[in-house]
Design a protein around this nucleic acid. Sequence first.
DNA 1: CGTGCCAGGTGCCCT
DNA 2: AGGGCACTTGGCACG
Lengths: 240, 240
Amino acid sequence: MGDLEYMIDPEPIEALKLINHRKTTHVLLIYGEMVASYEGRAKSQLEELMPRLIISKPDGTFMVHESSKREPRLWNPPPSSLYASIEQGILTIRSVRANPREVVIVEVPIIRFISALRLGTTVNYRVFGREEDVVNAIVNNPNIIEEGLQVVAKEYHTLVGDIDILARDSRGNLVVIECKRSQAGPEAVHQLKRYVEHLSQRENGTVRGILAAPSISSAAYHYLKLYSLEYRRVEPKWVV
Amino acid sequence: MGDLEYMIDPEPIEALKLINHRKTTHVLLIYGEMVASYEGRAKSQLEELMPRLIISKPDGTFMVHESSKREPRLWNPPPSSLYASIEQGILTIRSVRANPREVVIVEVPIIRFISALRLGTTVNYRVFGREEDVVNAIVNNPNIIEEGLQVVAKEYHTLVGDIDILARDSRGNLVVIECKRSQAGPEAVHQLKRYVEHLSQRENGTVRGILAAPSISSAAYHYLKLYSLEYRRVEPKWVV
DNA sequence: CGTGCCAGGTGCCCT
DNA sequence: AGGGCACTTGGCACG
């Protein structure tokens, strides 16, 4: 099983061979001292030579990690292409993304370790507790929000955006429900306000707006009251 | 220099020792067949045993990577704490985040490879071409936007949000400029509209709104025209 | 520490 | 392909 190849302190030419042989099938790990640069949507440079970790995936994912943070310091998202070469005796790796054009170049004068691994991919992966789950729970049981609520539509498309849930209350008023899986901020309230204003133009009678979220920030609550909108606490966990 | 330790097909107990010895100082790589679960803000599970790659950083970053995508399949952001143990002979790793409480548990019945690395951290890291750079470029040379424009304020704070740049045109009209470093979407237009409406309440005379971005989506442009706002193309590259 | 908001956001699904 | 939008968004600067 060629699912784990590695070299310690390899010669650049040996590392190069491994990279070119495995880059489209394996995940490559390269540990060594390196400098790097990025240019594309923005631009930055890692001029200081220091130990870093390169991770390259067969789908074109390319990352340069440092000792902290979840985010790579430099990267190219998939799909990107990997080109390795030896220039003046130094292993040089180029990751090129086509659209938008973005290039990451890494020079690795000191290669401490290189490895090629085979990783799997989980199929049918599912995260529970997303916004969609909250929406579905409310559609299945509108009483979570309010007694006597009748759902009219889900993902109702309007000119100013998509309304999560459109409903009518027991008195026949149109109700716009905007769902958030985590704390609602000002943007959520403004979103809701847009929907309500839009529907009010062609609806005779009150259009209510309800923000359904596990919590709401103080500023968001301020706007909410200002615009005469409503808030209902909905825990995504209740849904799962 | 203890900057690279590794073991191939280690016994669980040996892997455990390395983890506990190095988890607060080194980046740990663990390659093997594993199952995993996550519960916290949301919830998910990797029930199928397959080869994956664990990356743990000394700041508490914890990631489980699969063969594709830039994003880890499961993770805990820093700061989180790592606890390793052997349960029924199986290496078991727990990453616990305190606030919000989130737990990732990984069981690794087959450990193919484990390594402890020392990585560096770039100081004074700087990305060029951020929104702030665009704002500064306009402040330094308002003619980019329009002849005769006079900047009144940068980051002008209002009740409905922060205005990137407040200015007056050659005819004395107040001008709100909203900057984006990449393509502007509908939200940017609605943001701008809010600012203009807000300022119009206490300003006698026209308040203009200008969206400054490298491009604008079709829907956003539609709203822009609808609200009588303006668009100026500004390339972040011109700035760098 | 909460809150707000940008990001080289990334990823997903829709047209 | 391009747009619109959620995300366990992450990360940072600011009150």
